[in-house]
């Protein structure tokens, strides 16, 4: 019994790490633009698809494939911002939501046309696929890779925000864009960078995940939504919150799927989200702020 429990926890941590990374992407964009990018999940999908192209189609080794994938998805993020987001920055909230949903639909269709409808199989990152931790417990090494990679990039992101000038400029931009502009921070550049960064994070998550779950053109939607759930649960706009929310969501989801029912897995995630939204919309770590009349 405890072996199964352990397996669920491993899965929970793995998916939790992925959700955390996606949630961080949401938070980064939200901090600079007040926009929620509903197409975030598609960057995860593109990460997986491109990883397939480089590693399997072109038969490149894992490390260069991974690096190339990350850079490519960053680039796609930049194009997305330039082409679709920049003209829409001042549109109404509901318009922006629909536009990003439109982008998501667009990218999904394009992926379907380019890579087809079948799931793509990517080889695992290391030769040893499994490690026997004990008689009953077998650990899939890819889980370790996913966990390690995501933690690594979370640390890098943290250093970026805390130690670099650009990182601090991000925070300034979100709390007061006008004042930030007066101090010489180029808002457009910040927005562009935030899209590049969050796309990159999502792409990395996808590239690391897909050897485990296989890549398909329509995997992005659900990941994006759950990543957003994680961001809200942790507290929208709070980096640490996104990470915490991600892990919490992943673990509860896997435990629920395992012990209750796997068909209801997604329903469980959304139920957690709704519970938070109704009782504590500011999330675990978010702060409440009210509008003045």
């Amino acid at each position: 019994m405890s072996e199964i429990f352990f397996q669920y926890i491993i899965n929970g941590l793995t998916f939790g790490a992925i959700y955390a990374l996606i949630a961080l992407g949401f938070t980064v964009i939200y901090k600079t633009t007040d926009i929620i990018n509903f197409a975030q999940g598609e960057f995860v999908m593109l990460g997986g698809m491109l990883m397939y192209t480089f590693a399997e189609n072109c038969s490149m080794p894992i490390l260069p494939s991974f690096a190339l994938t990350a850079v490519s998805v960053c680039f796609i993020g930049i194009i997305t911002e330039r082409l679709f987001i920049r003209p829409a920055l001042n549109a109404s909230l509901i318009s922006v939501i629909i536009i990003t949903i439109g982008i998501s639909i667009l990218y999904q269709s394009a992926a379907m046309l380019i890579w087809g409808k079948e799931a793509l199989i990517i080889r695992p990152f290391s030769e040893t696929e499994f490690i026997e931790l004990s008689e009953e417990i077998i650990l899939n090494v890819q889980n370790v890779w996913i966990f390690g990679i995501t933690i690594f990039f979370m640390i890098i992101l943290h250093l970026f925000f805390e130690k670099t000038i650009t990182g601090k400029a991000f925070a300034a931009c979100s709390s007061n864009p006008n004042a930030a502009a007066l101090v010489g921070i180029n808002r457009n550049k910040m927005v562009l960078t935030s899209f590049a960064v969050s796309a990159g994070l999502a792409g990395i998550a996808g590239a690391a995940l897909c050897p485990l779950t296989n890549a398909s053109y329509n995997m992005g939607t659900l990941f994006g939504l759950k990543g957003f759930c994680a961001a809200i649960i942790g507290g929208l706009g709070n980096n640490l919150g996104s990470i915490l929310g991600g892990f919490m969501l992943g673990i509860i989801q896997e435990l629920g799927a395992g012990f209750i029912s796997s068909g209801y897995k997604d329903a469980i995630s959304f139920l957690i989200l709704i519970i938070f939204l109704v009782f504590k919309p500011s999330g675990l770590l978010g702060s409440k702020w009210k509008k003045r009349v």
Binding site: A88, S95, G102, L106, Q108, A110
Partner: peptide, 14 residues
């Protein structure tokens, strides 16, 4: 269909 649908939505709203 998806391409056109997505494209129309984005273009129309912008």
């Amino acid at each position: 269909e998806g391409l056109v649908y997505g494209g129309i939505i984005i273009a129309a709203l912008i």
